[in-house]
Design a protein around this nucleic acid. Structure first.
Length: 277
DNA sequence: GATCTATGTAGAT
DNA sequence: TCTACCTAGATCG
């Protein structure tokens, strides 16, 4: 379930379970065998996330970089370690805990310079204290690309994925196709503040919940439900169902190879009115 | 058992 | 705009 909050959560768990003590690192599957051998047996110094990227720092020039991609996942537990099963890219075993990594897009050892170069390409991360939202605002201002594309562009903002994109646009009544440069400053400020709040909530709970209490189906009298990904949302993967706020049947389109979910009534397209001033 | 799907990204065209 | 890649669980016959 990899959007930014998932990676920050993993970084936190890995710090708690592995930092400061030697970690046995291996690659039962073999695809990360050489990298694992480089860090095997070293103490983990730091673990941190930037956007959807996770970094395990064993030494300045021995950093395991993990990107989960669309379906990578970690599983964790307390020792003893279970038998290996399936395609296990990396296994970490500490004094008390183990962690298994499957299906990542990236699992590699990077040197400090490579980590810096990678991070330099990432936009501000709403979950990092060092985030500078002004940088994202400047990119939005220079772009005619639709907001829906810009929010998913990790060079603009890092950590936002398809769920947060859809939900944040809904919560702010923004048309996904609105060109970035037509977003007003106060709209951006509200959007960023909301992203910070929602993603912090996701980091705390491990779920993406975006529905305001007043719109909660259990409060409004509609049947309670649980989305397949485990959170309560307005539009993500709710195509074909009625909007929780206005009842419009929700559409879905593919934009830049990804499913886009929104409510055309609650997030109306800009018309000649706004174009005229 | 086959097929579909997914909270992602890089690289080719 | 497209294709490839990474994996497992859900869904379809």
């Amino acid at each position: 379930m990899p959007e930014g909050h998932t990676l920050h959560r993993l970084a936190r768990v890995h710090r708690k379970h592995f930092r400061g003590a030697p970690v046995a690192v291996s690659s039962p599957q073999g695809k990360f065998a050489a990298g694992a051998a480089e860090v095997d047996g070293r103490p983990l110094l730091r673990a941190e996330a930037h956007g959807k990227h996770l970094f395990h720092v064993y030494d300045r020039d021995l950093v395991v970089h993990v990107h989960l991609g669309l379906f990578g996942s970690f599983t964790e537990g307390a020792v003893p370690v279970p038998p290996t099963r399936g395609q296990l890219r990396m296994r970490m075993v500490g004094e008390q805990h183990w962690a298994d990594l499957r299906g990542p897009t990236a699992c590699e050892v990077l040197r400090d310079a490579e980590v810096k170069a990678l991070r330099a390409r990432l936009g501000p991360d709403p979950l990092r204290r060092d985030a500078d939202p002004q940088r994202a605002w400047q990119r939005l201002q220079r772009s005619q690309a639709p907001l829906a594309a810009l929010l998913m562009d990790q060079r603009v903002i890092s950590g936002v994925g398809n769920v947060y994109r859809a939900e944040i646009l809904f919560r702010h009544g923004l048309d996904p196709m609105l060109p970035g440069r037509e977003l007003r400053r106060e709209q951006w400020d509200a959007l960023w503040a909301d992203l910070v709040a929602l993603m912090r909530d996701g980091l705390r709970t491990g779920r993406i919940d975006t529905v305001r209490p007043a719109d909660d189906p259990t409060v409004t009298g509609r049947a309670p439900r649980r989305d397949r990904h485990g959170g309560e949302v307005y539009v993500y993967r709710r195509h074909g169902q009625p909007c929780l706020v206005c009842g419009t049947l929700l559409p879905r389109v593919v934009l830049a190879g990804r499913n886009l979910y929104w409510c055309p009534t609650c997030q109306p397209a800009a018309t000649g009115i706004s174009a005229a001033g």
